[in-house]
Amino acid sequence: MERKAVRNLRLCTKDCLCLYVCPHGATDTEDSIIDVDKCTGCGECAAACPSGAISMVPVQYPPQQPKTEEVKACLNELAQSKSDGEVMAREIAKATDKPGLKRLMKAVERSERLIAEDIMREAGFMLPQGDGSHELLEELISNPPTSDFPSGKAGELLEKL
């Protein structure tokens, strides 16, 4: 599997061992992001990093585990319910002038979205470059839900992924 090194800036403590070991100077960049064009995926930097800040990431991901129709159907319905909860919480937060309720509803809104995201991930949308995501983007471009659907952005994604 072809791999490239990526650095997690949050974990990187700037110990700079990766600068010394990279045979191609890919780790020494002004924005701290490892240069993908220079990186050959040898893995030396990841092995040397004392902070575990570098991952060797595959260029191509394997397909997601297949999902059965009934699992997808159940998860989709649960996600719909979570979306309804999110909408309710958003509207309550908007309408109320009670500061406590407003904050609690913002928390519920955020939480319900996170739960729905997790559900949809398991319902066939795990990978941005996976088949599910591609089919969805193609479907949205050929049958946009409304006339102002940003088809250009969806097309750009199809090209990039």
């Binding site: 159907a73 979570k82 995201e117 969805l136 839900p145």
Partner: peptide
Amino acid sequence: VNTEAADMKKLSAGQLAAVCTNL
């Protein structure tokens, strides 16, 4: 389970919002 809800073409705006933030 009614598997109709598995159809990608039937996803609602709310479901798609979650799909997109997840992706």
